[in-house]
Structure formats: structure tokens, C-alpha cells
Design a protein around this nucleic acid. Sequence first.
DNA 1: TACGCTTGCGCAGTCGAATGCAAAAGCACT
DNA 2: AGTGCTTTTGCATTCGACTGCGCAAGCGTA
Lengths: 339, 339
Amino acid sequence: MSQKATSFDIAQLAGVSQPTVSRALRGSPTVSEQTRMRIEAIAQQLNYTVDKNASRLRTQETKTLALLFFEDPTPDDSLINPFFLSMLGSITRTCASRGYDLLISFQQLSSNWHVDFEDSRKADGIILLGYGDYELYHERLEKLVEQGTHFVRWGFVQAGQPGTTIGCDNFRGGYDAVQHLIANGRRRIAFIGDASSHYPEFYDRYRGACEAQKSNGIRIVAARQVDAITTEQSGYDAAVELIRRKVKFDAIFAASDLIAIGAMRALEENGLEIPADVAIVGFDDIPAASLAHPPLSTVQQDYRRAGEVLVDALLKQIRNEKADTAALPARLIVRKSSV
Amino acid sequence: MSQKATSFDIAQLAGVSQPTVSRALRGSPTVSEQTRMRIEAIAQQLNYTVDKNASRLRTQETKTLALLFFEDPTPDDSLINPFFLSMLGSITRTCASRGYDLLISFQQLSSNWHVDFEDSRKADGIILLGYGDYELYHERLEKLVEQGTHFVRWGFVQAGQPGTTIGCDNFRGGYDAVQHLIANGRRRIAFIGDASSHYPEFYDRYRGACEAQKSNGIRIVAARQVDAITTEQSGYDAAVELIRRKVKFDAIFAASDLIAIGAMRALEENGLEIPADVAIVGFDDIPAASLAHPPLSTVQQDYRRAGEVLVDALLKQIRNEKADTAALPARLIVRKSSV
DNA sequence: TACGCTTGCGCAGTCGAATGCAAAAGCACT
DNA sequence: AGTGCTTTTGCATTCGACTGCGCAAGCGTA
């Protein structure tokens, strides 16, 4: 094929005008069945495909969404949170089934992504994914809203956020996890994960955990909470710290599975048995959770549903309908690490 | 902002013509420094960004690559091979650093992806990723070559392939893994993973494994090889089968980490200790490998480098330079499961 | 035969940026 | 003042598909 076929070529061969070709191929009812068939046959024979750039220029629609990952602490590519990778799969599939293409990009919080996609008409809307210091880009979100950019965000759900946010019910997840530990006889429950509002998702999980304890008449002991970011190493370090403090604990609720897995390693190295000495529950249900030793109980975020909801909320916005912020339910998965 | 600014708006404000604006913003030397500065200031003030679709239509260049995943056995989105997810990260980053956007898409082998991206000018080239039944799409690859589509493939490397393929040195990886087992005193080495040519990568690993045994004077016992596809369950099943056969073995070389992890679970359930009774080595070095219990020795594929090489090879093709098929070295990572 | 109505199609112009070519402006030198 | 050269700018056109509007042909009805 020396040269890509255009609608003009087809028009000429079919003995009609170029606009008729365009209409025929997009199924306009103003073209007779007969002509359409003729045109379609020729198009197929020439291996014709619509030039998307011309089409997009004219229609001002790209039928493409952009997915932006924000990475928090390290620029090391080994550390993409597995949970987000799972979401990626779901988002990709949903896009495909809705007839949209997906552009993906990893962003540093510093770069000016807010300009780069919808403004330049590479995409009709943007999906923002990533844990991270919310404050840092709060301002950017407001700018996006102001500019009328279509976007949805995965993250913690709270009233008064700019734009549409989809998240999971972190509070309830934390509550359920700890309730489960209590139901299994644990009373001294440690929490590993940032309890400040720096990581709002973690904070909600922590609040849920506290609430469960309170409603069971258990007093919260500050020393049983250790900060950690969502890496295995950080979880390990935090558990070591917990042990060093010599505060008694018979269970750990970790703010993420990666943290939990790191903590398990620390426990083991210190001769503590799971779940006999210490029960442990994580959060996310990443693939490695069920492979851990013992298999890790966790709170499952339904990434499959999440991807669908995100994409559909964004498409709603693009159609200029109102898309609501929503929290998806989280589900406790009990495995051997906690019973 | 009610309406997106165009180069005409800027031209008017700057008192120049539209083409001058276009030239100025792309740094053409034919525009005087003075005018350029004036234009740039106005552009910035209007939040102007180039309309990519117009630009692409005119230049016939998209500055975008498409990444197509092929999924082999199941359409279940939980089963994206973690190794490919790692590669995804690397590819994304490399694209970004080369100034290209990345479109991603999951494909069924049946769909007519060979038309959908470069032909419709959504992308300048295509990256194909995925294990899978090679025969099924061999024909398609030839068609791509014939049509002059720019593409690179990740997979097994062999002379006479259509197009450019980047892969890892599976044979050498298999060889090294088994050599390591032998060096640690193992003589009865089982292989789990397809040993037919259905999965060419696995087959190469198997051939490497056999070669290592032969060169140490160890006879290959057919009963010590069990087929498996690359899922944890399949690895589990295969190990159960191996045990059922009552053939003696003191080591397992698994064709992938997922298989290895499944096998470890089976060994454990049957009271076999790792590595005391059975040493085990996997392939890929997925994140879960180091989290396994005990940590899994494996052959690491350098996904980071792989992503770069893939992208750069593709860009070479796009520049109409010749891009060579290449095999990247694999590296043995020794952890506790084998020593 | 004349009128109106529907159906099918073409004309001409549009989307926004990029580019070959020519013209204008600036300068130097005779 | 006239010639030749370089630098800077504008004109006209192009990329390929989409669309508002109008025209012509076909049909039925009076």
C-alpha cells in the first residue's frame, strides 16, 4: 500500500461525492441502502479507515480518555502500587467496552498535567489516580473545575471536594476489619499507617478502626499506632518500631497490604507467630495478599467495579450530565492471618 | 474560559499573521527574537495550547505509540501477568521521556487490531506485549510487515521472525537457574511449564534447563516435566501431579514465578520443606517473588531495560532506521527457596 | 398537468495548524 | 539613486473528514 486511502478515493471509485462516503460509512439514514453497500464494499477493499485526526478536528471529540497516575514518594518505577495496577486493567477494559481509547501517563505532582490533555484536545476527559499528598494538588483540582475540564478522581471521599471523586468506604472498611479482630478475641489492636490527615484514605481507615474499638468499649492506646507509607519496607520498619516500644499488642490492622506484608516479615523475624501471637489484617487485597504466608486477611477494594464507576462517571460529565461523588463498599476477606 | 484560544486569536492580538504564530511557537529560526517573545507572552496569557488534532492532521505525525496487550487463556482481568504490568511502567516512562504519548489497549487475539491504530493515525507505531500462542498471530505479524506498519514485539527471539522482536535470553536464563540448582547439590530437577513449542519462551527455558543438566552429566527424566500455563493455580496443579507420579525430585525449576508460587503451596500442603526437601527457582522476578515464603529464587528479566529497548527500537523504525531483533540478558537472583 | 412532499445526494465551507513560495523590509555597498 | 543580498513576514493552500443547506429526482394526490 503506497498511500493511505481517503474518502475521496472511495468517492471517485463509487461515483459519488466525498460527503456521501462520509455519511454512508457512519450510517447516516440519508444515504440509500444501495449506495451504502457499494461504498462499504469499496472501503473494505481499499482497507480504508477513517483518519482520526481529521475526524477529531472537525467534530472536536477525541473518543479518548487520559489516565494520569500520580506517584507519591519515590520516582522508582518498581513501586507502582499493585492496587492501582489492578485498577488500570479494569479501566482499560471499561474504556474499550464504551468505545473509548485510553491514554496513560505517569505524572510528577509538579508537572503541569492540567493543561496537557484536554486542553490540547488529546482527550475528552481525565482520570486521576494515586495516593498522595492531597494538599499538594487540591489547588490544581480547583483550577480544573474552573476551566471546565472533565475529570474524575479516585481517592478519599469527602464533602466539599472540587469535582467528582470515587473512592471506597475506607471508614467502614477499617471498622469492619477491626470488628473482625475483636470478634476473634483480640483486644490490643495496633494500627500501622499514617494517622494524620496527610493520607486521607489512611486516616479514614484509622478512624473506622478507632470507632470499632470504642463501640466495643476498648480504649485507644496512642502507642499502638505507628506511621507508615505504603511500601513493604515502611511496614517492616513500623512493626519493628512497634515491637521496640514494648507496648503489648495481639493484633495489627495495617493501612495497606504492602504495609501488612512488611510487618509480617518483621513479626516473624522477632519470633512472633501469625495469627497465634498476633493477628493481622491488611487493606486492598492485592494479588500478593493471598500468596503471603500465612495468607493475609484484608479489606478488598472492588477495583473492577471501581474502574467501571470511574469511567462511567467521567463519560457522564462529558455528556454534560452531573456525576456524583460516590463511595464504594469495601469487603472484608478473612484468610488465615487473622483467625 | 468560554472558548479555546487558537493561533488566530494570538495572531490578531500580536498584530501578526497566523502562520507567524505557528512558526514562533515551534521555535522556527525565521521569526525574529522580538516577535517570538511577544507572541509567547500572549500565548501564555491566553492559556494557549496547540490543538493536537489539527497539528497531527497537517503533519501526519501523532507523537503517540500504542501498546497492545494480548491476553492468553482467560479474559479475566485479575490475571494480567505481573511481569507485564512492570513492563508497562517502564514503557510509559520511556515514552514520556522521549516525548511520546502512550495509548494502551487490551486485545483479544481475534480482533483486528492490526488495522486500528496506525492505519487510523492514532499512533505512529505499535508495541505488542503478551505471551500467547504464537502461531495464532504469526500471520497477522506478516501482514503488519507487509503493510509497512511500524511495530515491535516482546517475546521469544528467533531468526526468521517477521518484524522486530525484543526478548530476554530465555535459554541462558533456564541454563543459569538449573546450573545454580546443580551447584547446590541437586540432581533430580523437575521442570514445570509447557515444554512444547506452544509457549516458545517456556520452551527455550526448558531447553536451557536440559542443557545445564546434560553438561553436568545428568540424564533428563521425562516424568519430571509437567505442563503448566502461567497462573498460580496451574502451578499448584502441576506440582500435585508431579507428586502423584511418585518420581523422585529434589528441585523444581518453574517456567514462571506464578507457577513457582503455586507449586510452593502444593509442596507445603504435602509436607515437603523448601528448600530442605525441594529447592525451587522461578522466572520473571515479579514483586510477589520476594514476598513469597520462603523468598523465591528466580531469573530476573530486566523489565526496566526491556521497556526502553522496546520503545527505542520502535522509534528507530519510525525514523525509518533499521531496528534489530535483540535478546536481553537475564539474571539469576538467589533467595532462600533454593539454598 | 400541476402541486406538494419525501428521499437522496452534492456544493461549499469548516475545524486549526503547518508550509512553499513570494513579497516586503532592512541593510550594505557602489 | 540603484543594485544585490539577507532577514522577516504574509498569502494561499493543504491535511481529511464533517455538516448546513439547497437542489433534483421520485412519488402520490388532486
